[in-house]
Design a binder for these strands. Structure first.
Lengths: 340, 340
DNA sequence: GCACATGTTTGAGACGATTCAAAAAAATCT
DNA sequence: AGATTTTTTTGAATCGTCTCAAACATGTGC
C-alpha cells in the first residue's frame, strides 16, 4: 500500500535513518537545516510513523485496555469517559472492550490485550477472584480493578457497595415498607452480592416484621428488570412487596415499566430505588430514586493508579481506593406508607 | 518483566524457533511428539505470543477501530455491539473510540489508529467530507462510514435520515399539529441536517399554515434537550409549538423532562417524536414515539464491508448501503389535535 | 541397499523503528 | 595552522515473530 517507511524518508531527505528517527523523537538535537529537510520529505511522502515497530523496539505500549461489563450501560460509558480524559492527557490510547458479563468474552479480551502487550488493563471483572487476573499481574501487565475491590495484589477503585445497599434499604424501611423486593443478579457478580449484603444488613437491623424478598435476575439490563417486575406484579396483593431495591438503574427502569404496564402505581403501590443514578434515572416515567456513584471519578482514579504503577514500578505500592455512594431521593420512593 | 519469547520456548523444548512458530501457526505440520513438547514448554513458561512483533512481521493487524460521536449514547453502544459481534467471529479486536463530536479528538484518534496500522476504520465522522478520511483511504487504511453516506471513494452504511425526518414530521402534521419545533444541532452534523431537510420537506408538502420552528441545540445530549425544552416552554402559549421533533432520543428525553418540570402535558400540550428508538425511549415518563434505526445491523454491515474490502482488495467495489427507518408510535404523540 | 517421495525441522533473513558508540563536521581556542 | 571541544550525523545491532528454501529423517518400492 501507500505506507512509507523511515528509510524512504531518509533516502529522499538524503540523510541516514538514524537522523530521521532523531527528528521524530528529539528534534532539538538535529540541526535546523536538516530537520527542515526531513520534515519536508515526511510531508511529501505522507509518512506516518509505524507505532507497531516502535512499540516492538521500545518495549512499551501507549495503549491501555478497559474491559467493562456492559458498554451500553451509561454507568460504564461515564466511567470510560473519565478514564479516557486522563489517558488523553498522557498521550495514551484507550481500548474499550465489552465483556457483556460473559467470562468467556472477558477471557478473550484479556488474551488479546496481553498479546498486544498493552501498558496495563483496567477491568470491571466478572469475577474478581479469577486466577487469570493474578496471572496477568504476575507476568507483568499491571491490572487495576474498577468498581470492585482488590485483595492487595493489585490496585483497585471501588464504591462501597455494601453501604450503598444498606442506605437504599434503610431508606425504604424508614418510609414504612416492611416487605422489600431485591431485584438483581446473578449473585456471582460482586457488586450484586455486596449490595444485597448491605440491604440484608439494613433489614436485619430493622428487626422483626421487615423482610427482603429475592427477585433474582439473569442479567442486568432493562429487559431483565421488566421480567422481574412482571413476576412481582403477578403476586397476590397481600404477598406483594411494597417496595423494590433494584441493583442498577437499567433494572429499575425496566421494573418501572412493568409496573405501569400492570397498572401498579409508583410509588403508591410499589416504591422503587435504583442504583448508579445514570442520567436516565431522573428522566424516567417516575423520576427514580437512586444510589449515586462518582462515575467519571472512578474512571479517572483507576487510570491514574495504573499510570503511576507503570511509571514507577519500583516504589509503587498497591492501593485500594473506596468512594462513598450517595442516595438521591426522587419521586419513585417519596410516598410515606402507613404501617400495616 | 516476566514475558517470555519464542526463543526461550524453543530452548526449553529443544527445538528451533521456526518449529515453535509452526506449532503456533500451523500445528498440523509438526509431528505430534514435538508439538506436545512445545506446548508443554509454553505452558511451563507462561509464554504469551507477542502480537506486536507478529503484526510487524506479517504486516497485517487484527484490530479495527470504531470511532463514534458519543459512547454514552445507547444508539452507538448498540452499533458497536453489532460490529463487535462480527469482529469476534473473525478473530479481530475492536477499538472503540469516542470523538465526542469534537473534530480535534476525532483527528487524534484517527492519527493513533493509523499509526497503529489497524486493519481498517469504521467511523461516524463529525464531518464526512473531511480530507483526513480521504487521506486515510489513499494511504491504504480502509475506511467505512457509519451512519453517514459516502460519495464513492469509500464504503458506507447509513439510514435514510431525510426519510426519517420526513416520516416524523408527517406523522405530527397528520395528528393535527401546525406549528412544529425542530430540536437538534449543530447543523454541521450531517444527520442533523438531513433529518431537518426531511422534516422541512414534509412541512412544505403540507402547504400553508404549517410551519417548522428551529430550536437549534449546541449538543445532542439530555442536557441540551432539557435546555431546548425550557426555551420552548417559556414562549407565550399562542406562539408555542404544539409538537416537537427531536433529532435524537437523548434530546427528546431531556425535552420531555423540561415539559414535565414546567407543567406542560405530553402529548396534550406538546407532542414529541424522538429518533433512534433507544431502549430508554419506551421506558420514559411518557413512552416516546421515535424513529427506529436498525442499530446492530448498521454495525454488523459496516464491519462486514470493511472485512470484505480487506480480504479481497483487488475486486472490491465500494458500496453505499442505505437502510430504511421505521416510525414507532407511542404515547408521546398519540393524542389527536383539533385544528385551530 | 539404493533411489525417491514424503514428512519434519532448521536457521537465516526480513518487518520498521530506536539506540548508541563511533565517525565526521563544525566551532572554538592556542 | 593545529589541537581541542562541541555539535551532527551515521550505521550496525536489536526488539520477537514469521517465512521459506534448504537440510535432514523416515518410509516405500524395487
Amino acid at each position: 500500500m501507500g505506507t512509507r517507511s523511515i528509510k524512504e524518508v531518509a533516502q529522499l531527505a538524503r540523510v541516514s535513518v538514524g537522523t530521521v528517527s532523531n527528528v521524530l523523537n528529539r528534534p532539538e538535537i538535529v540541526s535546523p537545516a536538516t530537520r527542515e529537510r526531513v520534515f519536508e520529505a515526511i510531508r511529501e511522502l505522507g509518512f506516518v510513523r509505524n507505532e507497531v515497530a516502535r512499540h516492538l523496539r521500545v518495549g512499551r505500549s501507549r495503549t491501555v485496555g478497559l474491559v467493562v461489563l456492559d458498554v451500553s450501560n451509561p454507568f460504564f460509558a461515564d466511567v470510560a469517559q473519565g478514564a479516557e480524559a486522563v489517558a488523553d492527557e498522557h498521550d495514551t490510547m484507550m481500548m474499550l472492550c465489552n465483556s457483556s458479563a460473559d467470562p468467556d468474552r472477558e477471557r478473550r479480551h484479556l488474551d488479546q490485550l496481553e498479546q498486544q502487550r498493552v501498558l496495563g488493563i483496567l477491568i470491571t471483572p466478572v469475577d474478581a477472584a479469577s486466577p487469570r487476573l493474578a496471572e496477568l499481574t504476575a507476568r507483568g501487565t499491571p491490572v487495576v480493578l474498577v468498581d470492585s475491590a482488590a485483595t492487595g495484589m493489585q490496585c483497585s477503585v471501588a464504591v462501597d457497595d455494601r453501604l450503598g445497599g444498606q442506605v437504599a434499604a434503610a431508606h425504604l424501611i424508614e418510609r414504612g415498607h416492611r416487605r422489600i423486593a431485591f431485584v438483581g443478579g446473578p449473585f456471582s457478580i460482586k457488586q450484586v452480592a455486596d449490595r444485597y449484603a448491605g440491604a440484608s444488613a439494613a433489614v436485619e437491623a430493622a428487626g422483626e416484621g421487615v423482610e427482603l424478598v429475592d427477585f433474582e435476575t439473569a442479567a442486568l439490563g432493562v429487559a431483565a428488570g421488566r421480567a422481574a417486575g412482571e413476576r412481582l406484579a403477578a403476586l397476590p396483593e397481600r404477598e406483594r412487596p411494597t417496595a423494590a431495591f433494584c441493583v442498577n438503574d437499567l433494572l429499575a427502569l425496566g421494573f418501572l415499566q412493568a409496573m405501569s404496564l400492570r397498572g401498579l402505581k409508583v410509588p403508591g403501590d410499589v416504591a422503587i430505588v435504583g442504583y448508579d443514578d445514570i442520567d436516565f434515572a431522573a428522566a424516567a416515567a417516575v423520576p427514580l430514586s437512586s444510589v449515586r456513584q462518582p462515575r467519571e471519578l472512578l474512571g479517572r482514579t483507576a487510570i491514574e493508579l495504573l499510570l503511576e504503577e507503570v511509571s514507577s514500578p519500583g516504589e509503587h505500592r498497591h492501593r485500594q481506593v473506596i468512594f462513598q455512594p450517595d442516595l438521591v431521593v426522587r419521586e419513585s420512593s417519596k410516598a410515606l406508607r402507613e404501617n400495616g
